[in-house]
Design a protein around this nucleic acid. Sequence first.
RNA 1: GCCAACGUAGCUCAGUGGUAGAGCAGCUCACUCGUAAUGAGCAGGUCGCCGGUUCAAGUCCGGCCGUUGGCUCCA
Length: 603
Amino acid sequence: MLEELLERAEAHIPKGYDPTLYKIRHSVAHIMAQAVVERFPDAKPTIGPPIEDRFYYDFEMSKPPHEDDLAWIEDRMREIIKGRHRFEVREVTHEEALALFEDNPYKIELIEELISQNGATPLTVYQHDSFIDLCRGPHLPHTGYIKPNGIKLLSIAGAYWRGDAKRTQLTRIYGTAWKNRTQLDEFLRHIEEAKARDHRVLGRKLELFMFSDKVGPGLPMWLPAGATLRETLIDFLRNEQLRRGYEHVSAPHIGHLDLYKTSGHYPYYSDSQFPAMETHEMDGYLLKPMNCPHHVLMYAHKRRSYRDLPVKLAEFGQVYRYEQTGELGGLTRVRGFTVDDGHIFCRHDQVEEEIRDCVDLALQVLSALDFKDFSVQLSLRDPDNHEKYTGSEENWNASEEAMRRVVDEMNLDTHEELGEAAFYGPKIDFKVRDALGRSWQLGTVQLDYNLPERFDLWYTGADDQHHRPAMIHRAPFGSLERFIGVLIEHCAGAFPFWLAPEQVRVMSISERFVDYAREVLDKLQQDGLRATLDVRSEKIGYKIREAQLLKIPYMVVIGAREVEQNHISVRARSGDDLGSMSMDSFLEFIHKERFPSMNGGSD
RNA sequence: GCCAACGUAGCUCAGUGGUAGAGCAGCUCACUCGUAAUGAGCAGGUCGCCGGUUCAAGUCCGGCCGUUGGCUCCA
């Protein structure tokens, strides 16, 4: 019977999670709860699961713990661990459970929910030392399995009960626990290293972008180096889109409120919009939160024949969304950003092929920037809540099927996520992790039967009748800002040569070689390279160090030998001295790096 | 928006009631140098903003602004 209980508990460990670590963290969470309750007798424990690399426990408490409280709790946890207390599991009846936790409304709520879900199945409680908790397990046999120096409390945060902002805000304490001290130190070192590749830190060091209170939170300004990065990425994608039959358009940054009423975006999105501008006209104008309605109007500005389709309109369009203050962060969540937006208007029989092309483009973008570790999410409707979505059942089923077929055919390792679809249609989302392991949605492909309906779009078919086109929204980068933020962390600021804001820096060893250095710079620039000159009267080691910190791909050193042989000396940012060579051999050497690799996607 | 921490020179940070500090960056001068930091000197701050306590506030209290982490990988 005990065996069976333990076996059942083991089944709750998520796949891919080291079972020992899971049990350690789960057990340490209980131990922490015990220490917290000892320190704050009024604290009511709610839930405390292991999560990736760490664990947390949420409490209702009148006063959040202070830093010295955390230190006390951590010390007390080590004491408890040393007590080698057994984790005793036992089954309890519903009545027993309700009685055990009668003074804890959160546990009562959980118990009642479990009863209504699982009916007669008995609940389990785990007890160690003085602490007993409603818990499905699993846990370690006793606290002696935990290394006291393998645990650490990390931070305090507010968290809403059941994630619902309308309910009580609880105090969440995060901690981590590992099999031993070495593993813990490694984890902590990993966090420190991640900070060094944080795009906000690198953005400052490499002078890519800045923020200013005078402009406003979440409104990045691109400095010269960052702007170059942006423009280069835009050129890359624009060329690729031209190859794929897109036409580029451009729309204003504001639009009349009526536009967004027709599109259905207003007022449903009013929370995340900058307030409408007051004008002497009736309803005023809205800072555009998305480009779709503009592109829809451009599609509709003339009669379209079935022969014209697909019509593919693309724009690097600046949009503004009023994200909650607490959500803002660096470039990954901002209030003004550029969507590499594109809208495809096509016949229903073209939908699948067009989706495939969009996915192919998104994959090509990821591949050109060497993103290998991304996940593909197929975002579908919430099956229990179809009212949240617009459009016919028929269209939805067809859309979801079409998308599923595309990812299957393209052999993408995809996970389906219910309830994550847009209100107008299913999506294929590409997600990449940042330096801290947080996952961000970058590229997206979305199918939409709603906007064509709302704007009454049509084309003339072969039968001379009006037909409704389908619409695909897609953005391979997602937003330039977020993409660049994640990209900076991905390559730790060492951008591939074709993308590097500064590709080559020419530096003279002394003032005697300045003229020749200028000549070299001129040739590089004539060849279209982004090159600069450093002829300050500093030692060459100092100049190299600076260029190295800026992660400039190639450094060209000019001294007596080079002038004499009409050569240049080249050093790569990897630290490799590539030796002396002629200008032509250098240009030939870097030729293959000058353009993004085109072997992405399914070509 | 909510919880917590933080906000001092361009950057990284020290300074817990008694006349604002360091390193790096910057500027000036000297050095003319061979692959990750030459030396000396100078300059640089309404201590985020507003108010309060005090003989005295960067430091204590309150409000605001901003930044960072977190806000269902569900017993």
